[in-house]
Design a protein around this nucleic acid. Structure first.
Lengths: 273, 273
DNA sequence: TTAATCCAGTTGTATGACATCACTCAACTG
DNA sequence: CAGTTGAGTGATGTCATACAACTGGATTAA
């Protein structure tokens, strides 16, 4: 039925890729509506669908995406809750005026993506991977027994060679295994060094999907160790974000501590009323 | 059909109020699904529905709430996105293991509610309300012309008489009017002094509903003025949250600057993947 | 000119049917 | 006897259709 997907507010139609988003039949353990929402969310975050752009109406979206209208509506509800779109009863559905970006803390993206989306080149320095017994605090956060072995990943993250984040990731060693048994540390290191993402490692090697994260934010100031790692004066303002990532079954999977140089990034939060 | 609403994980049934949530016919300009979600959200946040509690199945919820199953599902999708519930295909719908609370920044609640939910008694000191021309920054945030008159509300917020937050609210003067014309400052002051909420004033007197807020978080340290207001040493860590509240039509309504004493509260963020 | 009315287009709600998944448990198999 | 298979049940997910409610502009009438 060749809906004119490109119209209204789009000045440069050739920039928009044809919208045939394929929602494959691949089994994802997620629902169809979530996959549709994810596809549309990518388009929005990549700027393919500009702010205030009017989407096709729901019946047309239904045929375009080859899913039913109720599925479309579920997906749109998801996006609406995230602040990506705005629905106006009797009028239409629009991309939000100011949709969330990667520096929005409501979106659980990693440091690498944050740096990249800010226009800088992500890098790593002082990579250190070790195993150690879990402290009481760590064990508590990860629902482990104190002393249980955990893998920790200590990195200084760079944005265009500037030290901007000190990150300390912790993962239960019992999770670091595939069908062949335990994954040796060098293999983990090789993967994370190349891809610069622990999330990718968890998803692709451990098949651990993260459902959501819960973050605590603490404003603090750099003591000696941090000041050294981040090459900033002692006492500089630091944003400390501690985060537990939760899997689909509700169990904590990973613990992340990130220390951001205060003026390196601007963080947003979408707060729904 | 008298569904046994209280069962499964609930140890103390008498604690749970009977669930007849009435979803009134009152015209709210919001959708039915949103009102249903709001009702359930209140029950969860007030602890009436404990974590991991299993909800009735959707058909039964439908009859209980006197709405259709599609409306129930829309409401549940909203709650699921906010991290309040978890749906498991083929199994059931459950209150989340760790549902968001008022100190979750993903929820747009005011300082007063935050203080109250922490178990402390909210209070106010150094109340100061003025009108002044908008600075360039303020005008930018509120989509006003620089120099346009704005109403500012300067408060030191107390938790059990301890100074914990310095807040500075800004509102375009052109919005501070009802059918009788402009609302005089003393009237605003009287209302906010008593209710300790600018949001309540905006909703009840100005009929301005806030759709969502966008917050910037900045870790910083207290300079002289702030240190004095908050009775803390200079250089203490401060969490600065600047927030623009957006109305249903997408226009900015209010600007809020809040400075939190670092260790006074613990802030959470729900980060969806 | 102005106000009321109509009308087309869109999202919201209701209803019913079926698909898919998870869990339990009986039956079967080696 | 341990392990596997499969039916059965009950839950959420998806589809299809119809209609209600709302918006905004065009039309019409005062």
């Amino acid at each position: 039925m060749s809906y004119n997907w490109i119209k209204d507010k789009v000045e440069n139609p050739s920039r928009l890729q044809p919208f045939v988003p394929i929602v494959g039949d691949s089994y994802d353990s997620t629902t169809l509506a979530q996959r549709v929402a994810e596809q549309l969310r990518s388009l929005i975050m990549e700027g393919k669908l500009p702010p205030e752009y009017r989407l096709p109406n729901e019946p047309d979206l239904s045929t375009l995406l080859n899913v039913s209208r109720s599925t479309v509506r579920s997906a749109l509800t998801i996006l609406e809750q995230g602040g990506f779109i705005q629905r106006r009863w009797g009028v239409g559905t629009f991309i939000a005026k100011d949709p969330p970006t990667y520096n929005n803390l409501s979106i659980n993206s990693g440091v690498t993506q944050l740096i990249r989306s800010s226009g800088a080149e992500p890098g790593t320095a002082e990579f250190l991977i070790t195993t150690r017994p879990a402290s009481e605090h760590v064990a508590n956060r990860l629902s482990l027994e104190p002393g249980a072995p955990v893998v920790t990943l200590e990195r200084v993250r760079l944005a265009n060679d500037r030290r901007v984040v000190f990150s300390l990731d912790t993962l239960s060693q019992s999770l670091c295994r595939n069908q062949d048994g335990e994954i040796p540390l060098p293999e983990i290191e090789a993967f994370v060094r190349e891809r610069q993402s622990m999330y990718d490692f968890m998803r692709e090697r451990l098949f651990l999907d993260i459902h959501h994260g819960i973050a605590w934010i603490h404003p603090t100031s750099a003591e000696a160790y941090l000041a050294d790692k981040l090459s900033i004066p002692r006492g500089s303002s630091i944003l400390h974000i501690e985060q537990v990532d939760i899997g689909n079954d509700g169990e904590p999977l990973a613990l992340t501590n990130e220390y951001y140089v205060a003026d390196a990034f601007t963080f947003y939060i979408y707060r729904s009323s």
